[in-house]
């Protein structure tokens, strides 16, 4: 049974804390051991594969040599018959017969090697699949365990810092309030900037006497004092 289905079963069984319920101390060790075993299998299979492939090549070379030998001897036999030397032709024919026996033996060796290679290759393939499957399962176990431990660390930290867990709605309100304040500030800053932008025009208006000047000159003061007298 896969780890995921174990977690599912644990959750259905009412175990809310899936991490604790499923990840027994041995799970990680078992998966890691299985991965090591599969890797060893692959290594051995690859060693054998190299040997068997070499054997197959050797057998193929021998097959070629025997076939050449047979062809050559067939030539000899024909030539002997052409010369009317039946005895010699028969001797050569016997040699050919024995070569043909050797040929079929060597063909057998070659075919055996070929099927052995196929078997080794599919063995390696399934071991590789096994490894990736185990790694996936291992990852589920490790992640579950890690999240569980991380959550505990976060909770402990929360407790020790004395802060209390804030209600989600309250958090949202605070965040939104701050965002609103930042936006307001930004708006105010922009308004201020646009006022500054208008300054030169206001200066011109004051200079032209259209807009009342807000600074008083010494002359203005004297005028005012004289008027009071």
């Amino acid at each position: 049974m896969g780890v995921l289905s174990k977690i599912f079963t644990a959750i259905r069984g009412g175990a809310r804390e899936a991490g604790e319920a499923v990840v027994d101390a041995n799970a990680v060790r078992i998966f890691e051991q299985e991965i090591v075993d599969s890797k060893n299998h692959i290594k051995k299979a690859k060693d054998s594969l190299t040997t068997v492939m070499a054997e197959k090549m050797q057998a193929a070379r021998k097959l070629d040599a025997i076939k050449n030998d047979i062809a050559e001897n067939e030539n000899y036999a024909i030539k002997a018959m052409d010369k009317g030397d039946e005895t010699l032709a028969l001797e050569v024919a016997e040699k050919i017969a024995s070569l043909e026996v050797e040929l079929s033996e060597q063909q057998q060796v070659h075919d055996n090697c070929a099927s052995h290679i196929e078997k080794l290759k599919s063995m390696i393939q399934s071991a590789e699949r096994q490894i990736s499957e185990n790694q996936r399962q291992l990852n589920i176990v490790k992640t579950t365990e890690s999240v569980h431990k991380a959550t505990s660390a976060i909770n402990d930290n929360f407790m020790s810092s004395g802060s209390q867990i804030v209600n989600a709605k309250e958090s949202l309100e605070r965040i939104q309030k701050r965002q609103q304040m930042r936006e307001d500030k930004l708006k105010a800053a922009q308004e201020l900037k646009s006022e500054e932008y208008d300054q030169p025009l206001q200066d011109k208006l004051k200079e032209a006497g259209i807009m009342a000047s807000d600074s008083t000159s010494a002359n203005d003061v004297l005028e005012r004092l004289k008027a009071k007298k």
Binding site: K149, A150, A153, I154, D156, N157
Partner: peptide, 9 residues
């Protein structure tokens, strides 16, 4: 945050 598993807040 240190613990059995390290967590960065």
């Amino acid at each position: 945050i240190s613990g059995e598993v390290e967590v960065l807040q």
